[in-house]
Amino acid sequence: MPDPSYVALAIGVAAAITISLRALPFAMRRLLAGSALLADLGRWMPLGALTILALYCLSRIDLGAPDHGAGPLAGVVVTVLVHRLRRNAVLSIVAGTAACLLLSNLLPW
């Protein structure tokens, strides 16, 4: 293992930067309190951020994997279908993940 003081310093720096980045917008928010801009952001940001995170995950599906991405792609289809039919987040996630696991691990790719 490298020098423990180097490792400790690196972890401390990474932790401090991470928490600062998480805390900073709350300070900005205090400056914007009650403004129309903050109200608009509150209206638009959640859907936009979730859409971006979902698309990011989809973009990471590896089509060059042994299953050519069939597991995760099937998982996405099952997740969306089950969610459209039952609107139960836990059920949709479990069903989609089960489909992904089955296709990725059980079929002989």
């Binding site: 959640p46 859907l47 979730l50 859409t51 995170l53 979902a54 990011y56 995950c57 989809l58 990471r60 599906i61 597991g71 995760p72 998982g75 996405v76 997740t79 969306v80 969610h83 459209r84 987040a89 949709s92 996630i93 989609g96 993940t97 992904c100 696991l101 296709l103 990725s104 691990n105």
Partner: peptide
């Protein structure tokens, strides 16, 4: 176990659908 991290992909897809419906 290949694919267990798919939970997070499914999570963000489901939450984006819910946010849109809302």
């Amino acid at each position: 176990v290949e694919g267990l991290d798919f939970v997070l992909t499914a999570l963000f897809v489901v939450l984006a659908l819910d946010a849109y419906d809302e």
